[in-house]
Design a protein around this nucleic acid. Structure first.
Lengths: 191, 191
DNA sequence: TAGAGCATGTAATAGGTTACATGATTAG
DNA sequence: CTAATCATGTAACCTATTACATGCTCTA
């Protein structure tokens, strides 16, 4: 039994209320861009399949001057299927940390080349951290009575912890590399 | 210009010395299982392509009682190509954190269901942390004069930091969920 | 004698992105 | 006038895993 996570991410978003494919894409971009994403090439075929499997129903909302909206709503069967997936143990996941892949081959380039990469990495994660904080604040002020809020706050806190760890590591690594720089050059240059 | 990271991961491993596809698979499993992996279905076709593009050369090592080994060695052109990739900025990467995907739909199941998931997550990351420590120690004792060692130690330290962040978050999240449990039940039950 | 390790490779399938096609409205 | 937003969808193309095919040797 293969579990398609993307399918469940769409089903989960529908559990928040009826939505169109366009809405779902926006949801990914505005809320969970930091830890999940999908393209239209995935979303639309999945919505079609969910309707075929009876996990969602489709209805068309006509609009003036704009294209029709194809709205999907989760069914009871869909909600059951979602719940079944939610309690299943998560699988082992191997993230692809490109920075590490480059770092372990670091000897092939200059020390400075490695330093530049880690500096860039550090800056990017600083940006991600700020973004997570922004999203957290937005949720805290705008969704005060949303029963999902406690879960969202846990998710934002995850982003905070992990990005802080990335940044701390980067700073430690930069210090270590600068230290190596001094050691290798101190024999030749003396002040 | 699309950059195929898998291609560069293979090329990088070859930069450590000539290897067969089988060796490369073992390298993934024994050294970088925590942050990168590839299957034979990727490795063998890539090795073929590297040879076609002149980035590696192939030679056959005959063995008694065992299948022949097809050994690939990186060429100067391959090393240049690797170096070119190593200095290129890394792209933005969106890891797929299944635990978070499940958590934000957490209201669809019981509080306890969420607690179980996070506990499982915590235990898994504890295991990963131990594994990283084991690999670090093994490298420190066995590769004392390897010029790549400093880079490897930075990579292990990354694994340490990130896994510790996961575990700390999980413990905080568990405390928060247990707290929610008490709040919602305190109206009904009193001690 | 069953299973693990050695060793190479392909085919089928699944998962995912990008580009394309279409076309109106609105904001700068 | 240009770009963005609204909105749906498909086709082509990468990327990656799993299962299969083959067959010998060594260990429990």
């Amino acid at each position: 039994m293969k579990e398609n996570k993307t399918k469940y991410s769409v089903l989960g978003i529908l559990s928040y209320g009826p939505k169109s494919g366009y809405d779902i894409k926006k949801f990914y971009q505005q809320s969970i861009a930091g830890f999940w994403s999908e393209s239209y090439g995935q979303i639309y075929p999945i919505l079609k399949r969910l309707a075929e499997e009876g996990l969602a129903t489709k209805s068309i909302q006509k609009q003036e001057g704009k294209p029709d909206r194809h709205i999907y709503a989760i069914t009871d069967k869909g909600r059951e299927e979602l719940q079944r997936w939610l309690v299943e143990p998560i699988g082992r996941y191997i993230g692809r940390h490109e920075i590490l892949l480059k770092l372990i081959f670091g000897r092939q380039i200059s020390l400075n080349g490695n330093i530049i990469q880690i500096e860039r990495f550090r800056e990017r994660q600083l940006g991600e951290l700020k973004e997570v904080e922004r999203l957290r604040k937005r949720s805290e002020t705008q969704k005060t009575d949303d029963p999902n809020l406690p879960y969202w706050l846990l998710a934002f806190d995850y982003g905070k912890h992990v990005n802080e760890a990335y940044i701390q590591w980067a700073e430690k690594a930069l210090a270590a590399l600068h230290n190596m720089e001094n050691k290798t050059s101190s024999r030749k240059e003396k002040k």
